[in-house]
Amino acid sequence: MKISHAHEDAALERTRGWLDRIGDPVLRAITFSAAALAVTILGLIAYELVSGSRLAFRSFGLGFITSQTWDTIHNQFGALSLIFGTAVTAVLATLIATPLAIAIALFLTELAPKHVRSLLGALVEMLAAIPSVILGLWGILILGPFVQNQLEPFLGSTLGFLPFFRGQHSPTGILTAVLILTIMIVPIVASVTRELLTTVPSELREGALALGATRWEMVRGVLLPAARPGILAAVALGFGRAVGEAMAVLMTIGGTIGIHLSLFGHSDTLAARIAGQYNGASTNLQTSSLVYLATILLVISLAVNIGAQFLIKPIDRRPRRQRIALDRAFEAQGLSAD
């Protein structure tokens, strides 16, 4: 029998159409420029901020960061009080939101009946879709009066021996802003955590339960540790959101300068101050000082982001991979890796 080769005379040259041939280079060009665009925009923003804050930098130098003053009449500006306000509100909101969000995620993935899961999950995510100005409005109309008339008197009478819960009751202030921020970041952290928990293999859950673990012991000892790096990243994401939020904070925090321990008192954050004063700035120095604030905010946000990435990255990734590879190589030869 004669074996006939198909296409015996056809050389291996390209026969694809014109459109087919340029597909790969075009794809590469489009994706590369998209990636380049993102980097360029970040660079441009950083450049604009630095150049915009030059005037303020020349006047106040790095002392801007350590000065509490924000005096529009005498044209004296400093960021410390705003950095303080930003840190306090963001940290407290994250501290309150994290356990809540993890609890929601655990309920949705481990405990809730199947048909409740998707409905409730969608509702939680919808909470994240509420525009921050609406949350701010709600903060003024509903939450503020509640904080003033119920929450602050209660905290004052039970925990008033602590300096954090003293002072005049007010519908606006750090406490109200913290609660609004908490409401904003809970759905973010919860939905990311929920995604993470669903990726933990069910074999791990079964492994723990088969050892006689209760559901809680399984969650605490196996599930949460397995998802820990991702949960930390989700928390960092929420923290970043809280640091950068302007509108809802502007509407609820009271907008005053000064550093104090009382959570009932007014304060202000970097983002809220920029949003609140930029349009009404009366001098070039004030405008430039606001841009200086923006530069500080950007640095903080980027630092949080980079910090989060370090948290996620398992420190021993490379050596471990190498170890696995080594083990396999040895085992293939019937040897032990030790």
Binding site: L204, A210, P225
Partner: peptide
């Protein structure tokens, strides 16, 4: 607790070798 189980796919916990064995003992 009395009737242990080993599964089809090896399912060690993402912990150290020691802690994998100690996990059940601890709980």
């Amino acid at each position: 607790r009395r009737i242990g189980m080993v599964f089809q796919k090896p399912n060690p916990f993402p912990k150290s070798i020691y802690d994998n064995v100690a996990y059940g003992l601890r709980i």
